[in-house]
Amino acid sequence: MPEQVGFFTDTSVCIGCKACEVACKEWNQLPGDPPKYLDSFDNTGKLDAENYRHVKFIDLVPESANIITGNGAAWLMMSDICKHCTNASCMEVCPTNAIVKTEYNTVFIQPEVCNGCRDCISACPYGVIGFNEQTGVVSKCTFCYDRLQANMTPACAKACPTQSIQFGTLTDLHKKADARMAALQAQGYSQAQLYGRDDSVYGGLGAFFLLMDKPEVYGLPNAQNAKLPSRNNAKGYLGAFITAAVGVLAGLIAIRQNSDDSQRGD
């Protein structure tokens, strides 16, 4: 059994070059989309069936601030991807068992098993999975499963010029992340934090991040909101059961009440 692998994405050194997006598209033969001209340098918009990597540009510069050299607020950049959760919401709900864990402990969608019900899209809290109209099934980052099997580094990590995206065994990546965190905190970056390094978010993430602000600023649910869909199973069924029981009782009262009346009149 191979050791569990992962991505450590250090957003503090991301320069927004999108080399990861291009490399991912090339290797996975994903179609190019017509560019979107969004608020920033973001031409991709979101992760979906055609975009397994998405470089986010988060503009935190206040419009009215008196910005001069040395006191400006930087943009945040982050190369987003499937998190390959230890406890994956998509995998939990998938009724066809098309979503599986590979021998590398990454989350993989089997295109020949998926039937396109899209329940996984409603479950993924990161908005990672997209429906492909051409193939009729859903897809997302495969963690370059084919490259892993050939002992190659995933395309995005290979292409990243600043080592913002690092690939390796999770054990090694955790050590690197801890060291980088310590260095940043020593430099006074008190907001810096690791996301998905520990098990507070979906049991730990195969693709975890060093963030320079709160997770929600990057469009990531914080630990309080990172919940599995099954949390509503018991309460949902209990509510339905009680309502159904009350409904049957109400129906019984209605049918018996008037039934007695009509029988009296028969």
Binding site: K46, D48, R118, D119, I121, S122, A123, C124, P125, Y126, G127, I129, G130, F131, E216, G219, L220, P221, N222, N225
Partner: peptide, 12 residues
């Protein structure tokens, strides 16, 4: 408060 960053499944 709940926060959501999910995409719609387009169940229509």
């Amino acid at each position: 408060m709940a926060e959501h960053f999910v995409q719609p499944p387009h169940w229509e």
